[in-house]
């Protein structure tokens, strides 16, 4: 489902402030696998996510998502890939605080060809699953941390993605919320979704349903 073939990622290549973010990364995630990416912050986890999401292009090597190389396609096609196949849960949730819950979670589908009623239907279903229905018209800035996290999850699910990327999803959450998050992730895996989790939270390593653990440090896989 996800494959990185000897990928290098160099920022500002050829310039005095050249910075190698990733070196010779080989990684493969099969369909419906849950892969845990472990490493300290700054180790290159986020860069791998950016590559998989097509937000940056590799300086060398190839990135293949769902059987298709995205290393050299135009930005617009990378964006279409994100829109169709990917759901991302960001570390800081990255919600738009002025907008309502509904507007936040439907944001990915606004430029799509889906009709408003179709979007409405799937949004309501997801919000019911995540018990957020009563907050549908509330502006995100009035929500608690846990609610915000669930909105972020809802937004990642709105396009019925094949792949979920979650970057440090449990940072800044208390015990109860982490438990409920694990529950949600488990459900998603049960639905056949491929999941890539980046975290240095030791709790994830203990889960028996994690299929693959990859340790990363200084931009290289250990």
């Amino acid at each position: 489902m996800i494959r990185l073939d000897s990928v290098d990622l160099i920022f500002n290549s050829g310039l005095p402030n050249e910075m190698t973010a990733l070196k010779n990364i080989n990684l493969s995630v099969e369909k419906n696998e849950l892969t845990l990416l472990r490493g300290a912050s700054g180790s290159g986890k986020s860069s791998i996510f950016s590559l998989i999401a097509g937000l940056v292009k590799p300086s060398r090597g190839d990135v293949i998502i769902d059987g298709k190389s995205i290393a050299k396609i135009p930005d617009s096609f990378a964006a279409l890939m994100r829109r169709d196949k990917l759901g991302v849960i960001f570390q800081k949730f990255n919600l738009i605080h002025d907008l309502s819950v509904y507007d936040n979670i439907t944001l990915p589908l606004i430029p799509s060809a889906k009709t408003t009623s179709e979007i409405r239907l799937s949004a309501e279903k997801i919000l019911t699953d995540l018990t957020l229905t009563n907050k549908i018209n509330t502006a995100v800035r009035y929500l608690s941390g846990g609610e915000q996290q669930r909105v972020a999850i809802a937004r990642a699910l709105i396009n019925q993605p094949k792949i979920i990327l979650a970057d440090e999803p449990t940072a800044n959450l208390d015990q109860a919320l982490i438990e409920s998050f694990l529950h949600i992730i488990h459900d998603l895996k049960a639905k056949g979704i491929t999941i890539l989790l980046a975290s240095h939270d030791p709790r994830f390593s203990e889960l028996e349903w994690v299929d693959q653990v990859i340790d990363i440090a200084h931009g290289e896989i250990q």
Partner: peptide, 16 residues
Amino acid sequence: KREIGIMKAVGWRVED
């Protein structure tokens, strides 16, 4: 800026 970044990250194209 953050808002635009989010939009692009969740699947908005440059054209959009």
